[in-house]
């Protein structure tokens, strides 16, 4: 006995095509990244590091800086925020590096998933850590005497700068983590730039306190430019002239991040 099957029935019986759901995949991987951040105690360090930095620089140096007419609590705020941002970024780099060495990225390559999803998921986890770091930095800075002086617009500008810079540094660090090859190499690659750019900036002391021969470097390097924008926002005197170098540094950082992520992605594929 033969049976005839209508077209609609045969369509129901046919195996469903494997469908990719990038948004769901991104959500699942973001949740994985955030839970990892919780488990590894990175939120604890996100709180400890700005408090530690604020205490360790403010208590020994505030009276020294007072002699130069600097309100050191107010002066330190941008660099403490940027150091917190830097902590979140180095955390992102280490996570990317561990994912690479543990082979999870290679596994993701063979799944029906767009290749950008893991990177965006790591970025989301980093953004959450970044927001927590900024909140903790704000608390730490408030304790040492920082108060927002630029009104609503200035304060929004201050945090917007920190957030944009944080996301870009996070992307850059993510690329470094993928390219470096191992957590140890990643740690080494991040250590020197963090130390040099962080210390040799106008974040801790005014540019006039540096020896003359190094002042041009200190004045023009990216951290100093970010600090200048944040201070100008905080004082409510931000101009395009102050903002322009930061915009160009951000464009450069984004370009470098794209290149590094491209190299890292190709390395995973190979």
């Amino acid at each position: 006995m033969s049976t005839s099957v209508t077209g609609s029935q045969s369509a129901l019986r046919a195996p469903a095509e494997a469908r990719t759901r990038p948004l769901q995949q991104w959500w699942a991987l973001s949740a994985r990244g955030i839970s990892k951040v919780f488990r590894n105690g990175e939120f604890v360090f996100a709180f400890v590091s700005p408090v530690f930095l604020a205490v360790c620089f403010y208590l020994p140096l505030s009276s020294v800086m007072d002699t130069f007419g600097v309100n050191y609590g107010q002066f330190l705020m941008p660099i403490i925020v940027l150091q917190s941002v830097g902590f979140a970024a180095s955390s992102a780099a280490m996570r990317a590096s561990f994912d690479d060495t543990e082979g999870i990225n290679t596994r993701f390559r063979v799944l029906p998933m767009p290749s950008a999803v893991p990177m965006f998921a790591r970025l989301s986890a980093n953004a959450v850590l970044l927001v927590v770091s900024l909140m903790c930095a704000t608390v730490a800075c408030s304790v040492i005497g920082w108060r927002p002086m630029g009104g609503v617009v200035g304060t929004v500008g201050l945090y917007a700068t920190a957030l944009v810079v944080g996301i870009l540094i996070g992307l850059l660090a993510d690329g470094i983590g993928l390219v470096a090859g191992s957590p140890e190499a990643t740690s080494q690659a991040l250590m020197l730039p963090t130390l040099i750019l962080g210390m040799m900036s106008t974040g801790f002391v005014p540019v006039s306190q540096f020896p003359e021969w190094i002042q041009p470097f200190v004045r023009n390097q990216p951290i100093s430019q970010f600090v200048n924008v944040m201070r100008a926002s905080d004082s409510g005197v931000l101009t395009w002239d102050t903002l322009q170098p930061t915009v160009w540094w951000c464009v450069g950082m984004f370009a470098a991040a794209v290149v590094l992520l491209g190299i890292g992605n190709r390395k995973v594929r190979a």
Binding site: L195, M200, F204, V205, F210, P211
Partner: peptide, 10 residues
């Protein structure tokens, strides 16, 4: 770093 950054101030 300490010398360059804080040396003059201190």
């Amino acid at each position: 770093m300490f010398k360059v950054v804080l040396g003059d101030a201190i």
